[in-house]
């Protein structure tokens, strides 16, 4: 199994799926492979950062609703009740 490349994208630029995928990757690497302590500590810190980033994205999530107009998408204004 190839070693996990320490991904170098800044965490705050990742979207939820990317951050989650990397987090799961890190968890598996930490659980499954022999890592040097230094490497493991780096992975752990990045994992923690990813987890808080994911959490923040979840709390901030707002449903985006668009409407098809012909072949393009426009924002859909919901009627207030």
């Amino acid at each position: 199994m190839p070693k996990t490349k320490p991904a170098q994208n800044p965490v705050e630029e990742l979207n939820y799926e990317e951050a989650l995928a990397e987090l799961e990757n890190i968890v598996e690497t930490l659980e499954g492979e022999e890592n040097s302590l230094e490497e493991a500590m780096k992975l752990y810190e990045r994992g923690q950062t990813l987890a808080s980033h994911c959490g923040a994205l979840l709390e901030a999530a707002q449903l985006k609703v668009q409407k098809l107009a012909g072949e393009s998408l426009v924002a859909f204004e919901e009627e207030s009740e």
Partner: peptide, 16 residues
């Protein structure tokens, strides 16, 4: 998803 993140965090901490 929240649970999943919490779970991942616990696994991270456990393994380190």
């Amino acid at each position: 998803l929240r649970l999943q993140i919490t779970h991942s965090q616990a696994r991270l901490t456990d393994s380190i």
